[in-house]
Design a protein around this nucleic acid. Sequence first.
DNA 1: AATTGGTTCTGAACCGTTACGGTCCTTTCA
DNA 2: TGAAAGGACCGTAACGGTTCAGAACCAATT
Lengths: 367, 367
Amino acid sequence: MARSMHVRRPATLASLAAELGVSRTTVSNAYNRPDQLSPELRRRVLDTARRLGYPGPDPVARSLRTRKAGAVGLLLTENLSYAFRDPAAIGFLEGLALACEDAGTGLLLVPANPEREDVASVHRAGVDGFVVYSVPDDDPHLAAVLERPVPTVVCDQPDLGTVDRVGIDDRGAMYELAKHLISLGHRRIGVVCMRLARDRNDGFVTPDRQHAAHFHVQRNRLSGLAEAFSEAGVDWSQVPVVERFDHNMASGASGAAQVLDRDPQVTALICTSDVLALGALTEAARRGLRVPHDITVTGFDGIRAGEEAGLTTVRQPVLEKGRAAGKLLLDASERSRPRSVNLATELIIGKTSAAPRGGAEERWFGP
Amino acid sequence: MARSMHVRRPATLASLAAELGVSRTTVSNAYNRPDQLSPELRRRVLDTARRLGYPGPDPVARSLRTRKAGAVGLLLTENLSYAFRDPAAIGFLEGLALACEDAGTGLLLVPANPEREDVASVHRAGVDGFVVYSVPDDDPHLAAVLERPVPTVVCDQPDLGTVDRVGIDDRGAMYELAKHLISLGHRRIGVVCMRLARDRNDGFVTPDRQHAAHFHVQRNRLSGLAEAFSEAGVDWSQVPVVERFDHNMASGASGAAQVLDRDPQVTALICTSDVLALGALTEAARRGLRVPHDITVTGFDGIRAGEEAGLTTVRQPVLEKGRAAGKLLLDASERSRPRSVNLATELIIGKTSAAPRGGAEERWFGP
DNA sequence: AATTGGTTCTGAACCGTTACGGTCCTTTCA
DNA sequence: TGAAAGGACCGTAACGGTTCAGAACCAATT
């Protein structure tokens, strides 16, 4: 038996039909509608297919005809690989993947290099819909997605009104956290936040930049802070807010350092993510500051590592967020007016927050 | 201006061409080969496209014609979401994503539910190639991938001889680890390993099952152990080997418990992954066993959490593995004979291994 | 004998694009 | 002034399927 005949042109459904002396329809049916042809013919088709090395209907051609790709695209602001380094993003991915596999749908990670404005990857993606996760609102990739005639759900983005959205109340959650710190007595604070726009700005943030921030999530978290502390009589424009472009613990540490260098008297370091907060903790330790005795540190997200560190933070259901995004997208249902889902968050009071030193709850040094 | 005319049939390249009175070729060129037509015509084309709501060439049709999907498929044995819960898998994914974004290629996560033998998702995936990561060698999804006429690279799999492969020397690495334990004096050991086949078997493993294991990685790690300990005069058939289907710390803990219940005298618990080892550590602690004084525990992989726990383990370059797999696949180069890449591993001697109690290095209780 | 019904298979249209190999017209240069 | 070159655009033929409305056939019912 010939192992595999040297096929110059790979077999197609048409060539298979010709070989068998049946119509293409019949071959197609052999694969897709077994009940539409006699079992023996079907067997003959499949046998011949094997013999000719025909791998079954071409997925792309099928997609073209059926107008279904069987995949959803995921657009991230960051280098694709970044998503696998950020615990919150991983949680989101897991949830989204969960929804996808429930629906038997593939998940296409679309490469959207934030450096180059190369939107081609979005145009090239053969998908039935898009999920957009936390990209700046002026990202050209986002614009490209919105131009595609497929359903889209944005996540951690402002409500565009035209597409589904899932997120949390970043502003309200941070407001609540701030209220907690205020009630503890903190008035002199510093903030470390993630990038606010596409341009790198590792340093202090002007109020203008805060308001103009292109990352919805960061803008709202800062605004929640500003509101709460303003209400408590703090002049927000005097609060040191440090921005870091890269999102990792090192950034949190250096950000904390920059705040503490500017104002060593701050009693609380508020970070807009747990990862940054964990970095801030290391910097505090490096300086010999005891947390929470000498300084309070808070985060945002509720990641595992933060939990283990006893971080005071806001827990948000990242996995649920991903799953909700997937469900929203895959629930073909009626194309009703765009839906907007807000998930609940929870304020977690851990061991990294306490009243400022010299406050009412001040304890004397123990043995 | 009308916001958007009610378009029953969305605009296509052809309808756009008709509207403009030019050929389809010209419209296509406007998008893909700007140098092939005059700037003013190109502008006119693009303007009209915008006016008609034409979103640019359809990616699927384009793929069909060009025979390029711009994406590689990733096949995992587990539920898709599992990949985001396993540190080693995440590292692999990160590396693979890295290679993909370098090439501007998308990464399609193919849903391969191990429960159902539903191979359709593999057939439906519009991709230019596949990466197969650590699936059992009898997995029907793997077979389906191999039937597809696209380049494929398998990872952590036996060398199929027909497709590219990347992996490590699991057998040799584990052999080396075993030698270390042997040199410390361990002879009475227990093993906790990951699933060996597609059927669930949470319990002791017969030698037969070890040899017949369908997971290449596990089979080789066990075989490395067996060889080393046999050489040291240990009757391998008497060594308790416990298998766990689910891969998480709880499995590691319960696996360790099962071994210790069978033989409380074991001086070392060898786990075939760090995750299992971390679970074993918790079980040891629960039993009041001090590591490494009362018992030695080892892992495999070199994940971060293991490192923090001071785990004795084998570090393998998971990220590099993913990147190598991607490079291999995307390096169109010559379709030479299938390549096989073995990455280097490193034996990490941490704080969880020591000579068995009663051995030469025995220390008396400290204060 | 005509109708009905069911199964099995076919023909042709269609999905939206790009590759290929031209044509036609205007410049350029000897 | 005529040949060659080059720019701009076009027509046709795939690319590999799916789908739907029948056709052909046969058996059973009216």
